[in-house]
């Protein structure tokens, strides 16, 4: 699998990829399209490995997939059973059938993480909104990933605040090389990416990242926002997330504070 790019687009159920290949080879007049395969992962964030399964329970369907970032075509590998994944990366899959147009591509990212923060104590300020409290501050390091259906389960913390401070106290001093925010972007639900984030280790600023303002509606996506940190060691890690003051002018919610949604804070 390819190494992770800085910004991950995690389109859990459906990607927006257009149907491109194979149409020339299909009988003319075909208009119905297969639905995307269902994709399930036992743990999107894993320490050792994850098991990924694909399914579209319809007669004569073949599911094909890639793990190198390429589009899925009739020449891609045939799915025959659950896939064991032990490195960070993405699986792209698509369903094919002799009588129907191929499905859209479904993509699923998985991410290998270190166990550094699993036992950390966590403080969050301000408190998340009462409608999206997650499962308490510790749920930011429990490796339990939320889905794009953000109202389901207690995975996501939602904020409407200028800044959000997340502090981790590790049980011992540990090296810190990369901090990753696992966030949701869903502009249609007024949930936006933050403007910037700063990382402090033992009180010292060691990393900062800025992200561009959203310029178009886009689709719902789970994202990993990476903040590289100059190699350092410490036992307290503070992440200060700065949000945009208001929703941009192109959006129906313009002028009001955007939502910021986070379900995990990953330390490598």
């Amino acid at each position: 699998m390819k190494p992770l790019p800085a910004l991950f687009l995690l389109s859990f159920l459906f990607s927006c990829s257009a149907v491109r290949e194979t149409e020339g080879a299909l009988p003319s007049g075909m208009i119905f399209q297969l639905a995307s395969p269902q994709c399930r992962v036992d743990s999107v964030l894993f320490v050792n490995s994850a098991l990924l399964s694909l399914e579209l329970d319809y007669p004569d369907v073949a599911i094909r997939y890639t793990d190198n970032g390429e589009d899925v075509s009739l020449n891609s590998r045939l799915y025959t059973g659950p896939i064991r994944v032990s490195t960070s990366g993405a699986i792209h899959a698509r369903a094919f059938h002799p009588d129907f147009l191929p499905s859209e591509i479904v993509s699923r990212q998985v991410r290998k993480i270190s166990a550094a923060a699993l036992n950390a104590s966590v403080a969050v300020h301000p408190e998340p909104h009462s409608s999206y409290p997650g499962n308490g501050p510790r749920s930011l390091v429990d490796l339990q990933k939320g889905s794009a259906a953000f109202r389901n389960g207690n995975y996501w913390m939602g904020f409407q605040a200028d800044t959000v401070d997340i502090s981790l106290s590790l049980d011992t001093e540990k090296p810190v090389g990369l901090v990753t925010l696992s966030v949701l972007e869903d502009n249609a639900s007024w949930i936006f990416l933050p403007r910037s984030a700063e990382v402090f280790v033992d009180g010292k600023l060691v990393g900062r990242k800025d992200w561009p303002a959203s310029t178009s509606p886009g689709t719902s996506a789970l994202q990993f926002l990476e903040i590289p940190v100059a190699g350092t060691t410490g036992s307290t890690i503070q992440v200060r997330v700065a949000n945009w003051p208001s929703i941009p002018d192109w959006h129906p919610g313009k002028g009001t504070p955007p939502w910021f949604f986070i379900d995990e804070l990953l330390i490598n």
Binding site: P27, S28, G29, M30, I31, F32, Q33, D99
Partner: peptide, 27 residues
Amino acid sequence: MRNGAVVLSGFGAGLNALDSWARYKDV
């Protein structure tokens, strides 16, 4: 819209190619 082909064909009575009409009616 994801199933644009389907939605569009819902608009256009008689606008589909005949082979298309025949084909999906077999499904």
